[in-house]
Nucleic acid binder design. Structure first.
Lengths: 359, 359
DNA sequence: AACCTTGCTGCAAGCGTTTGCCAATTTTTG
DNA sequence: CAAAAATTGGCAAACGCTTGCAGCAAGGTT
């Protein structure tokens, strides 16, 4: 049995070939292969055998032409470069594959124009789309959702199915963590102004600050990558805070690099908390305290929602929304606030126990 | 001009719609839009205008059905999880987009069966494929290359276009580097036995060892990820070498973690060199000395080769091969060999002293 | 025994493009 | 100015599949 090693015939087998081999009509073959119930079990068996022997593979183009369904899903990311999306892509890939779909990966390069443009150009090539970090306005997004079955990740808009990673409530935890460490002025290193989650995080931070009675301020916006982090580090240092929550880990890791460069010790001189818990957050130096986002899971849920919708053929019918919790993962980049009037020496020691770094 | 915001007509415009609007035949419209030379400039202009106004978007399925060309390319990776591929994917994505192609991303999960299976199942959905880290035997790969236009990355096989990242010669540099630091016994932490580059790296390491008159040995194979690194670290420690070159950075980063866990100081007690220079290699602790591989560039080159071939319609005609150099990037994980001619008691001692961990 | 379900299969009409071929028209040439 | 050549545009046949409709046996019902 070395089927897969056999040379394929020059012209791949078609439905008609299989039909001819069995002495039935192409329509029967079609039904036998896709609509099991509609055909006599015996005939079906015969057809399946012939199809197998001929190495028949359905032509998805032709199938899509009539049925309108392509069994593939577009996944849009705003920047392939960002490791956050690695987890997303992994999640969508696996879940889509499990559901028998193919993934069309599209990089929108942080541009809303690109987003709709690509979505339109390939409209016939996918059945539905998953938008991660869409830059569209609510209006355009809603309009799009009426045309195209889609699920947004990290974007809640009326009428659009979504999976929301609840970082804002994680920010709450992070703030409490920092405050309990003695920090009294905390900065938020902002990501792109057009980013929807960015806004939510900043608002959550402000509110938590108010509730806990500590000073908050925003620096930025910065582009959400490591070089943005360099700028952010300088700005944060300049702002005189003792702790900072960064829009995402990539930014935070960039900041870490700059801090080291400038001789600022983390967490001794300043504490830093990231968002997302991307690849690398656990082994950078110091390991990053961060809000762990279940990105892969979010991706899977998004796919499930989309696939469910595609299956039932209800165009805009099912309007779902899922929320996934984040949790604070404390690692080495957050510690007691530098000794200040209040006096927090005791706390500093105890906190230091899980921070121990050989150096 | 708010074209993109307009609601689309219920049924997307087709060639026939455009033809009707201009009072010409669909064939003329088709030619005007795809085969510029074949049609009167005036007519063409008229057609283009109408197409624009109707928001005509060619149906790629229908187009693929007749023309056989899909303008999309399959990119196979063996494990989406591996950051090495992030650079590859980024490279292919960008270059494909520039060439007007769409990327079909496929994870083969390190299995050759999956590889051919997916390639067959989607055969009509892509024009050509880029194989990164194929697990196929030479025979099967060659056979496949006759059926399907493809370019392999990091795999040289007769009759198959390829882009080769010359890590072996980089291994040479790494060996010289280590030897110059005083290391005399050097281990290779092996990746998967079926991995082609793995073999090349090990061979290069052996040869360099011979040339430089130092002891070499292989430990492994390990699965090329961080948990594999844990096992690798233990094995390497056990082998009594003072330096190690790892199959890839992911493995190396895993080793780093284990070393820290066991209180082994890098590079004081042992030197470690990785391969690839993935995201994270520069900010792990200590930063990893590694062989920087131009992965993104390799991906771009591969795409260029493939697209060139697809363009000229010469099925298996152009057999190209490109080689890209790697270079050693020295960072913090490699240093002088521990001072200990025969035994390595110092290392053992220091290791032991650190093994006890607060829990 | 005539009639009606029910289940299975075939026929044929698309789906939206591309493309070979031919007809009509224009341009070039002798 | 006629004939040949070149240009332009249309017709219609694929491409491989899905699906509504109809035909045709069986088996079940009065």
């Amino acid at each position: 049995m070395r089927r897969t090693e056999d040379a394929l015939p020059r012209r791949p087998a078609t439905l008609a070939d299989v039909a001819r081999a069995c002495g039935v009509a192409t329509s029967t073959v079609s039904r036998a292969l896709t609509n099991p119930g509609r055909v006599n079990p015996a005939t079906r068996e015969r057809i399946e055998k012939a199809a197998r022997e001929l190495g028949y593979v359905p032509n998805s183009q032709a199938r899509a032409l009539t049925s309108g369904r392509t069994r593939s899903v577009a996944v849009l990311v705003s920047d392939i470069t960002n490791p956050f999306y690695f987890d997303i892509i992994r999640g969508t890939q696996q879940q889509l594959k499990a559901a028998g779909y193919t993934q069309l990966l599209i990089d929108t390069e942080e541009s809303d124009e690109h987003e709709v443009e690509m979505l339109r150009a390939l409209r016939r090539s996918y059945d539905g789309a998953i938008l991660t970090a869409t830059r569209l306005t609510d209006r355009r997004l809603t309009a799009l959702a009426e045309e195209i079955p889609l699920v947004a990740i990290n974007r809640q808009t009326k009428g659009v199915a979504s999976v929301f990673i609840d970082t804002p409530s994680g920010v709450d935890q992070a703030m409490e963590h920092l405050v309990s460490l003695g920090h009294r002025t905390i900065a938020y290193a902002s990501g792109p102004a057009t980013s929807w989650p960015n806004e939510g995080r900043w608002r959550a931070l402000q509110k938590a600050g108010q509730r806990l009675g500590v000073d908050t301020r925003m620096v930025g916006p910065f582009s959400p990558n490591r070089s943005g982090g360099t700028a952010a580090a300088d700005a944060v240092l300049n702002s005189g805070v003792t702790a900072c929550i960064a829009f995402n880990d990539l930014l935070a890791i960039g900041m870490l690099g700059r801090f080291e460069q400038r001789g600022v010790r983390v967490p001794h001189d300043i504490s830093l908390v990231g968002c997302d818990d991307i690849f690398g957050a656990d082994f950078c130096n110091p390991p990053l305290t961060t809000l762990t986002a279940p990105a892969e899971q979010a991706a899977r849920v998004a796919v499930s929602m989309l696939v469910a919708r595609l299956g039932t053929q209800l165009p805009g019918g099912i309007r779902q929304a899922a929320t996934l919790p984040t949790h604070l993962t404390v690692r080495g980049s957050s510690g007691p606030a530098p000794a200040a009037p209040g006096g927090n020496t005791t706390r500093r020691r105890s906190a230091a126990s899980h921070t121990e770094r050989p150096s």
